[in-house]
């Protein structure tokens, strides 16, 4: 683990700035659209779709950090991973809140009905729910307390990202090209992980 001063070494600073810039890009866009009244004829839908899309994009970016470390042989991708994950969760919370506020007006009955009857909502909700413990245990304290369980727990992001992609796929009525792109990216990132694990396996010392 790097010490406090080295954590702010130049390369890491740039990686961090890049991560913040990406995470805040949707906020910049939304602020611009709101200021110019350009959210379109159905602003609620625009906000819902855009925040959900960025939640999914950041989740996938988060998943890209492990392969990126392998490729770049650098530790920075792992050091900005938590930041990306938390921002993904933040955007998904905004996404969920917009739906709860404007579509359901916080009616628990309607939420229950949607969860039971509408598969895409069930998938999205479960995905969000899986991210909740990851956000809570994202601190160093929890990482220390949970030890190896922590890494195992945080593999839940694999399921959450898949559910997010399926949530998008299920929502679309007939032209599934866009959600398929995200599902394909997910598949690629998972394949890179599995491939990496297989390549690493023989290097392990035999007992």
């Amino acid at each position: 683990m790097a010490d406090a001063t080295s954590a702010w070494r130049r390369p890491l600073l740039y990686w961090r700035l890049a991560a913040w810039a990406i995470a805040l890009l949707p906020a910049v866009h939304l602020a611009k659209w709101i200021a110019q009244a350009r959210l379109g004829p159905n602003p609620v839908e625009t906000l819902e779709h855009y925040t959900g899309l960025w939640g999914l994009r950041l989740l996938l970016l988060c998943l890209a950090m492990t392969p990126l470390r392998k490729i770049t042989q650098r530790s920075e991708p792992i050091q900005i991973r938590r930041l990306l994950g938390l921002w993904a969760f933040a955007w998904l919370c905004v996404h969920f809140s917009i739906y709860l506020t404007f579509d359901l007006e916080w009616s628990p009955v309607q939420l229950a009905e949607d969860l039971v009857k509408r598969t895409y909502i069930t998938l999205g909700f479960v995905g969000w729910l899986l991210l909740l413990p990851l956000a809570i245990t994202s601190t160093r304290g929890w990482q220390r307390r949970l030890k190896r369980t922590w890494s195992r727990l945080h593999t839940l992001i694999y399921a959450a990202a898949l559910l997010g992609g399926l949530h998008f796929f299920w929502l679309v009525k007939s032209d599934v090209r866009e959600p398929l792109v995200y599902l394909a990216l997910y598949g690629l990132l998972m394949a890179a992980r599995i491939g990496g694990a297989i390549l690493r396996a023989p290097k392990k010392p035999t007992p």
């Binding site: 004829p41 159905n42 602003p43 609620v44 404007f102 007006e105 895409y120």
Partner: peptide, 19 residues
């Protein structure tokens, strides 16, 4: 009559925020 994607109980009139 419920729809598998949308609750048909309410609707958003374009231009309004709530249903």
């Amino acid at each position: 009559v419920q729809h598998p994607r949308w609750s048909q109980r309410s609707e958003r009139r374009l231009g309004e925020l709530f249903k």
